[in-house]
Design a protein around this nucleic acid. Sequence first.
DNA 1: TATTAGCACTCCACTTATATGAGTGCTAAC
DNA 2: GTTAGCACTCATATAAGTGGAGTGCTAATA
Lengths: 344, 344
Amino acid sequence: MELDDRKLKILQAVIKNYLETGEPVGSRTISKFTDLNLSSATIRNEMADLEELGYIVQPHTSAGRIPTDKGYRLYVDTMMQDKVDEVNNMRDVLIEKADKMENLLQQVAKLLAMNTNYATMVTTPKYRSRKIKFIQLTEVDEYQVLAVIVLEGNIVKNKMFTSAVALQKEETLKLNLALNTFLQGLDIEEINIGLVQKLKSQVGDYANLVTEILDAVAQALNEEGDVRVYTSGATNILKYPELSDMSKAREILTTLENKEELTQFVENNGQPVDKKSIQVYIGDENQVDSMKDCSVVTATYEIEEGIYGKVGIIGPKRMDYEKVVGTLQNMMSQLDDVFKNGNK
Amino acid sequence: MELDDRKLKILQAVIKNYLETGEPVGSRTISKFTDLNLSSATIRNEMADLEELGYIVQPHTSAGRIPTDKGYRLYVDTMMQDKVDEVNNMRDVLIEKADKMENLLQQVAKLLAMNTNYATMVTTPKYRSRKIKFIQLTEVDEYQVLAVIVLEGNIVKNKMFTSAVALQKEETLKLNLALNTFLQGLDIEEINIGLVQKLKSQVGDYANLVTEILDAVAQALNEEGDVRVYTSGATNILKYPELSDMSKAREILTTLENKEELTQFVENNGQPVDKKSIQVYIGDENQVDSMKDCSVVTATYEIEEGIYGKVGIIGPKRMDYEKVVGTLQNMMSQLDDVFKNGNK
DNA sequence: TATTAGCACTCCACTTATATGAGTGCTAAC
DNA sequence: GTTAGCACTCATATAAGTGGAGTGCTAATA
């Protein structure tokens, strides 16, 4: 049996209708809904075929049909029409709030959640291993010293240290110099024990301060490798009856609250990375267990060559894919704009 | 009619039982449950009195009784026994994870949520206006300069600036000096336009850089005045049937997600600040609308004289007050310990 | 006078029966 | 190939009946 044009039209009608209502769709509805001018009986026959082909199912005998994951997949891949997204110029809002990357990404999550009524997530960009640009020590008072660690890409970290011995201006300067001489330009793998030993031998009294500082450096480098995730609108999940029975809802919300599992989406769920495109994971296609009843639409934003993060929208399988994809595309282009032209 | 000893005992029994089961409590249950050796009929008479006094109600005729807010209040104020909290040495976990205040507070929220099975919140401490300790500019490359702003209490903020004109080492040093001369020791109210003008006139070329830096300084000072809120275990709310009908649950979870409303608890809900004590807000006693079906138990932690934040536990009205209060007291003493003895 | 046994009554929660109707599959006619 | 027609299925809604937990009240008891 083949998927001829008429079957496609009927399938599309079923899915569209189901997306709107969330109720199983019957043959009579389709018969009137479309311009095919076919009786409900004919539609019934076609629908039986579509069911046999695996695109739709009946929740029970004598109910209408609802799309299967396979049906949604076909719809998303071939039948969806681009919808122009009316939500423009998020850019202005973005810039206004964005003094730091962190705030910007949070803002992105929030905007998307408000515009779509689904839950959203944004990951921080995944950097490859950073290198140390420079370190600067500043005496804060007699026993305290502030270390400012600047990484490539102008990531700044700072940490306060308390020294056991009273600090001396010239000694601190010497330590500062030594640190930079040894560490500048290195990434985390290049800082080995031999190097640390050599460094320590140069600074005498300050040896344990060096240990602490190196810990902080290592942590700074690691932190930047880690992907963090911001979410917003988690409670939107509860708006959709098919997701809001207690056990499912709790699983989903817990996943969103804990965030760790969401980093999976950065790995592109096993598929090849294809930035600029939008990925749709329908139901069981999701790696994350608690989301097997959801659809997740993700997009990739790129800050600079090879450094990218993910933006995702999480909703029921019958989410408004067209709107979501439209909104995401819009958001991506605005983000691109912000990254390319700087924040001002 | 008076609240005699026997009535008190019966009320206590009703509440205890209801806290455990969540089901209305009948007279027969009490008759057996307590050591009063009274028949159910007598209990019934007493319960009728207790209802008249407003401590308990029937959800419907021919059901058992459940406590009113007034009943819970009496219980919490006078009848609750301290329960020793078996969850010890959170301190170790705290310290291990706590390189920054932010992380520490998040960890506190998480630990409490895990130990109690309720939702939790922790606010950052509310500082009075901070003063500027010093500012340090560092050239990062030809056009970029990093400003590290250190506030009293060793709060460190940093921000990167891009200059329109190429930077010159000696000029930057001069600017650095000027900034510190003018701004050191000032708080946000003391930085006025006259001062800014004077400062600008001293640095010639760098005038607009100064504007940007001052913005950042203002923002840093403000940020520290703001109270942020961390939450954890929000989804625990869904474990309690009386809170988990969709509309209520959504309201509560949304409040927890948005966090703004939670800062109300820092104001001590209108009551006089009494640190070291624990506050219990039952049902309607809560200022926050969405929590009128919950109880909130808060405690105050103090970092240094007059600088304090709140820790709160949010659950159903029939929460295990004894355990919650015990856990909170324990946590507060551990926190005190950490703050007093430093992080190490 | 305080307590209790006993009883009628209420009302929720649960089960069972019944009806409704949306939707189907199949057959036979067009 | 399409359609009208019909018997059939099954989720949902409504009504009716049942059991039981719990009450309030009264009258008897200590």
